[in-house]
Structures are given as structure tokens and as C-alpha cells.
Simulated assay, not measured.
Amino acid sequence: MTDWRLVVQSRLDRVRADLAALGPPDPLDLESQQWREVARQEAAVVDDMINREESRLKTVASWWSGWHIERAWRSLHEAEIAVVAAGDGFLGRLPGLKARVAENLDEDDPRRVALEELRPGEFPLSIEREIVVDALRASFDKSDFAHAGSRALRNKLIAASVVLFVVNTLLGVIGWTQPGWIPMCVGSERLPTVCPSGKAAAGADVWLIQVLGAFGAILSAVVLLLRRRPSLSPYVMIGYQATIKILLGAALAVIGILALGAGVTTGLIGVASQAALLLWAVILGYSQQIATRLLDSYTDRVMDQARPLPRLEGQR
């Protein structure tokens, strides 16, 4: 069972416990009975999504589309709303309801304002239910849409990783079969020519530069791992982000060494030895952090929407 299933299952158990705690339904409160039935139906859908068994091909398709994950979360949210609405009052639940809605809705959202101004007993129970249900649905909808945004970003990262992998593989194969086509040797009028694998060009030069560039990128990926916060989102991005960094680092190392060999940095950078050339490959691989830092920031914003964090004091 994956992490998202564990979280959904624990919350589903809580829904069923809350439903049982409501006690026998009031025969005069038909609306409450309807909400109880909705809670049971949505709980059954969640069970089906969690325990669904599919063929390998369908499993891959479901993983890519994420429909079973998002259906489970949406049905769970509807079940939680139904359990709250099935009660005969909201006095004891108001603090928790307000906190949950505040995680996703802005302070000036009319549905949040109506919930925060609600005073139990001020309106008939049916109107109180409408206010609570409307606010909860708006809050959960925003969370569900954030899940969909996370999945879209994950799929884009996977597609980008595949493209980078193909490009790096082609560069390595070309360098291996035709060493002169992608020259990895660097020289100048004042400095001797040095190559990654020695004094002469070799078929493994491009592969070696890519490996060292990937190593430099791994260093930045470790930094990403250390600063990453725990996530309860059903989509975890850090592995895909690290893959992008490593593959991009390998590609940038090749491009950077080509630039050094072309004399773009003449007068600024001098490569006098094989060790210096290999070190520059590592540095160039790490330099992908400049480009992927924007990706990291964007991913953080998307994930923060999918797993709302408490606002810090003084923030709006």
C-alpha cells in the first residue's frame, strides 16, 4: 500500500467512526438520513479505489492519468462533508470546520466569511447545513484541483526526463562511434591540448564528460533532498526533479566543454591539464542548478497548494 492509500484509508476509517458515532437517525430528519446514505456510498467508492486490482497495462495508464487517486480523494471529501452534514448541530465542530476551510479559502471569500460568522441556533438547521456544506465543498474543490495540477506537473517532468535521456544517449552513442564529431578536447595557443581520457580523443570522452556532469548535478540533488519538507500529497515530485537535474547536468557538461574547446572563454578560463578538464565537467554539471532553481520554486508553489501549510504569523 502506497503512502496516499495509507492516508486515505486512515481518514476513511475516521469517517466511518464518525458516522457510527451519530447514533440512530432521527425519523423526522429526512435530510440527515440522506446525508448518511451519501456518506456510505462515497465510502464504498473510496474502498473500491483503494483496493482496485487492474492489469499491468491498466495500472500504468491509471498511474499516468491519476484518475483513481483523484477519484478516491474526491469521494473521501464528499464522505467527510456528508458525515458533517448528517449531524444535528455544528456547535462542537465549528472550530475544526473553520480551521479546515481557512487552509484553502481566502479571508474575503464569502463562503469562508459566512462560516466564520455562523452562530449555531441563529438559523434553521437546514440553512446551517447549506452554509457548512458550501464552505467545505469550496475548500475541498480547491485542494482537489491542486492535486490535478500536481499530476500535470509530474507528467511534464517525466516527459522532459525522457527527452533529456534520449538526447544524452544519442550524444554518447555519436561520441562513441564517431569521436571527432563531438570534440571533447580543449586546447589553445598557450596551453596544450587535453582530452577527458588522455592526450588523444577517444570514443568514451562524451560518456565520461556526461558521467562527471551527472555527478555534479547529483550534488545539487542532495541539497534538494536536504531542504525538502515532508509531503502528504499523493504526487511526490522530488524524484522527478532530481532526475531532471542529473540528466540536464550531463547535457550541460557536454555543451560547456564544447564551449571551452571553441575558445568562448579564452582569456577567462584556461584548462591546462586533464584533471582541470574533468573538474570543469563536474562544475558545469552542478551549474544546472541555476536553471532548475526556477523549476524547484515553481514545484514548491504547486506542492504547497496540494498540501496546504499553516500560515506563518504575520503572513497573509
Results as ranks from 00 to 15, higher is better:
residue 2 T to H: 13
residue 2 T to S: 13
residue 8 V to R: 04
residue 9 Q to N: 08
residue 9 Q to R: 15
residue 13 D to A: 08
residue 15 V to P: 08
residue 25 P to G: 02
residue 28 L to C: 07
residue 29 D to H: 06
residue 30 L to C: 03
residue 32 S to L: 01
residue 43 A to G: 15
residue 44 A to H: 15
residue 44 A to G: 11
residue 63 W to K: 10
residue 69 I to A: 06
residue 69 I to Q: 12
residue 71 R to V: 07
residue 74 R to T: 10
residue 79 A to E: 04
residue 81 I to G: 10
residue 89 G to Q: 08
residue 91 L to E: 15
residue 94 L to H: 08
residue 102 A to D: 15
residue 103 E to A: 14
residue 103 E to Q: 15
residue 116 E to D: 11
residue 116 E to F: 13
residue 117 E to H: 15
residue 119 R to W: 07
residue 121 G to K: 12
residue 127 I to T: 10
residue 129 R to G: 02
residue 130 E to Y: 12
residue 137 R to D: 10
residue 152 A to E: 08
residue 153 L to R: 13
residue 155 N to P: 00
residue 159 A to D: 06
residue 174 I to Q: 03
residue 174 I to E: 02
residue 175 G to W: 10
residue 188 S to Q: 06
residue 198 G to M: 05
residue 198 G to Y: 07
residue 200 A to V: 14
residue 209 I to A: 07
residue 210 Q to V: 00
residue 214 A to N: 02
residue 221 A to M: 07
residue 230 P to I: 05
residue 232 L to F: 15
residue 233 S to P: 09
residue 237 M to F: 14
residue 249 G to Q: 01
residue 251 A to F: 15
residue 252 L to T: 14
residue 253 A to G: 04
residue 255 I to A: 15
residue 272 A to V: 03
residue 275 A to L: 07
residue 281 A to L: 00
residue 296 D to S: 11
residue 296 D to G: 09
residue 299 T to C: 06
residue 305 Q to M: 11
residue 308 P to W: 04
residue 309 L to W: 09
residue 313 E to M: 09
residue 314 G to S: 01
